[in-house]
């Protein structure tokens, strides 16, 4: 195991055995829709609160993941999950149902990759053999916590992003045949680009993404062109352009992509694109995972970005510090 300023090399081949992604009705027109496992037609049922609906999305995604991995829920060693709601309530309540030993994690929208890194570490250490890891978000629940009531008429600027309603989870096991393996993880550092506008999080998160990508490339002795794609979680269309400008490498313009910028296609209703812990989880664990499995991609770097603000810090005049966690996935030749 090589440790160099945050990058961890995994030698025991922790693999993504299967994935499960559930999304809400607003996401059904996404270009990635065919890769999602289930599109639920209602954001919430009649007698539910939005937070309870979030829990339901998580439970469904976990059930799908475990079923596709030909496993039983009782055999999973650890459940690692995160979301954007206060005290991680939706994931806590989902863990209540799953009854598996549970680690709740929070790094805002970077929670998905954080759980995958921690899961890989547990597998690497040999202390666990089956991990369920991922993250989720739920649009109405996040809006009412971080921003305004849903029906409130606040005009959104073009830099605003739409939090997705999605839950994405992965089953991690060691040395699974014909499954993408996680070779490296780079743990992010908190980077503050001195941006204070919560309606323009792309600009706030870009410096954190850059820091993590640069450290990962340095620590693994690679260049941008070694990868088929370097995909960030939710910088959005404008944030992605800012990130591309921050690199001098010409290859960036093709290889650097963003899940949030592509999530809703060209629909301007969603302004700068998608965001949320579910955004990176849903795209990485459906579309990218499929591309790895069928051999289109052989080596990818997945960088989930998170903005570590709260409604309180913003009102108190603070800037928005951000973090980006990365994992490198490779598809080895089929055995």
């Amino acid at each position: 195991m090589v440790k160099a300023n945050g990058t961890i090399q995994f030698t025991e081949k922790p693999s993504i055995a299967s994935t499960g992604v559930t999304v809400g009705p607003m996401e059904k027109d996404s270009p990635f829709a065919s890769a999602f496992d289930e599109i639920l037609l209602l954001e919430k049922e009649k007698n539910e609160s939005y937070e309870e609906a979030n829990t339901r999305f998580i439970e469904k995604a976990c059930a799908i993941t475990v079923k596709k991995g030909h496993e039983k829920m009782e055999n999973i060693d650890v459940f690692i999950g995160g979301d954007l709601i206060n005290q991680l309530s939706p994931t806590n309540f989902a863990a209540r149902k799953l009854k598996i030993p549970y680690l709740g994690v929070f790094s805002a929208c970077a929670s998905s990759v954080e759980s995958l890194i921690i899961g890989s570490l547990l597998l690497e250490s040999g202390k666990a053999s089956s991990i369920l890891a991922g993250a989720s978000s739920h649009h109405p629940a996040v809006e009412r916590q971080f921003r305004y009531p849903l029906e409130y008429g606040a005009q959104k600027p073009k830099t605003a992003q739409w939090t997705v309603t999605a839950a994405g989870f992965a089953l991690l096991q060691k040395q699974v045949k014909n499954a993408p393996i996680i070779t490296h993880g780079t743990i992010g550092r908190v980077v503050d680009g001195k941006q204070a506008n919560p309606l323009h999080m792309g600009a706030a998160m870009a410096p954190a993404a850059r820091d993590t990508i640069e450290r990962h490339l340095t620590n693994t002795n690679s260049k941008v062109s070694d990868f088929d794609v370097i995909m960030t979680g939710d910088l959005g269309k404008i944030g992605l352009n800012i990130l591309k400008d921050m690199f001098t490498d010409e290859d960036c313009h093709v290889i650097l992509q963003d899940a949030g910028a592509q999530f809703y296609g060209e629909d301007t209703f969603f302004n700068a694109g998608a965001s949320g812990a579910g955004c990176s989880a849903a795209v990485f664990l459906s579309h990218i995972y499929n591309q790895l499995q069928n051999g289109t991609f052989k080596r990818v770097l997945l960088v989930a970005t998170g903005a570590l603000l709260s409604p309180l810090t913003f009102q108190q005049g603070e800037t928005i510090p951000c973090i980006a966690h990365a994992i490198e996935c490779r598809m080895e030749k089929r055995n």
């Binding site: 830099t159 600009a203 400008d245």
Partner: peptide
């Protein structure tokens, strides 16, 4: 990259409000 350079990039990429 220092703060000033970053701010310049952000300003360049920000969509102009009509």
């Amino acid at each position: 990259m220092d703060q000033k350079q970053f701010e310049d990039i952000v300003d360049k990429q920000n969509p102009k409000t009509p």
